[in-house]
Amino acid sequence: MKILVVEDDATTGTYIARGLREEGHTVDLVADGRAGLLQATGAGYDVLIVDRMLPQIDGITLVKTLRGAGNMVPVLFLTALGSVEDRIGGLNAGGDDYLVKPFAFGELSARVAALARRPQTVEQETTLTAGDLEMDLLTRKVVRAGQELDLLPREFALLEFLMRRKGRVQTRTMLLEGVWDLSFDPMTNVVETHISRLRAKVDKPFETELIKTVRGAGYRIDG
């Protein structure tokens, strides 16, 4: 299974990730809610393990945002907040299970396995579209108006990020975090350069411009 662990306590996060990897799972570990939300969006995870008390964005908000966007990946809340009201709040927010710290790793592993066995109510998205532009996430092919586009890996990642958020403005900071995994501004024109290269392939040969610059805000893709 592919599992995302969103846990700000380094010791706990490392412990969970190591144990799950020893069981043969692929595990990504992030330490704050904002990074967790970006990572979880369309990354094809089978299960998310989410702490409730996280920096940047709390776990409840993270899961509510995913559910609001139609992402129904199973979520196990793992938290020190163990009252009945806390558990109800987590489940009502969209969580599928709730485990209170301190916990036994064996129980966590069993709960993760149980969540993964549940039938998915919504199929994982494998194709993204924007106008006459289509991206196949399985074959990693991008086609516009019947013409296949030759994109470099970073260009593909940038286009995927924009297409998953079609119609919504993405700021330079969002792009740096979501595509380059940078939590700081490197003070270079890396975003602008890649947007320009992407436009040359996605827009320039065609009549309609899909990638738009929103002055003073960022970029968005229409369609």
Rank of each mutant, 00 (worst) to 15 (best):
A130W: 00
A43K: 07
Y15L: 15
Q120D: 12
E7Y: 05
R199F: 11
L66W: 04
V214T: 05
T65V: 03
P205M: 15
D150A: 08
G13F: 10
G68Q: 09
V73M: 12
V142C: 04
F161W: 12
E123N: 12
K2H: 14
L158W: 09
D28P: 08
H194Y: 13
R172Y: 01
V122Q: 06
E7V: 08
Q39E: 15
K64R: 15
W180A: 07
K201T: 06
G90C: 02
E22R: 15
L81S: 10
G223E: 00
L182F: 01
L66I: 12
G89Q: 07
V5D: 05
G106E: 13
Q170M: 14
D28H: 10
D181L: 09
T129S: 14
V73Q: 03
A145N: 15
R164E: 01
F105E: 02
E85I: 08
F77D: 09
A200Y: 02
G94T: 03
L81I: 06
D136W: 08
T127W: 09
N71Q: 11
V30I: 00
R165F: 06
V73K: 12
Q56C: 13
A31N: 07
G95N: 07
L115Q: 13
L175D: 06
E192K: 04
V190C: 06
L137H: 08
K101V: 02
G218A: 02
E192Q: 11
E85P: 04
I49R: 03
V73H: 05
G106S: 05
L99G: 11
T173P: 01
E192C: 03
V202L: 04
V142F: 06
E155S: 15
F156I: 01
I211C: 12
M1R: 04
D222R: 12
D150R: 15
R87A: 14
S83Y: 08
L133S: 06
L20G: 04
D51C: 03
R21N: 08
L91Y: 12
I88R: 15
L149I: 13
L158Y: 05
T139L: 13
G82F: 00
S109D: 08
K212D: 14
L62V: 04
V5K: 03
T173G: 02
I195G: 14
G178Y: 05
G68W: 04
L81A: 12
K101C: 03
Q39W: 14
I60S: 00
H25K: 00
G216P: 02
E155R: 09
T139Y: 12
D51V: 10
V5H: 13
L149P: 00
L20C: 10
E23I: 02
R117N: 11
G36R: 03
T121L: 08
N92C: 03
K166F: 00
L37H: 08
L62T: 01
A116E: 14
L66P: 10
V84G: 02
P119V: 05
L66Y: 09
L62M: 10
D203V: 07
F105D: 06
D150V: 14
L108A: 05
T208V: 14
V6A: 05
V122R: 13
L66A: 05
R140T: 12
G223P: 09
F184H: 15
R165N: 11
V75S: 04
L4A: 06
L198M: 05
K212F: 14
D32N: 15
E7R: 11
L159F: 01
G44A: 03
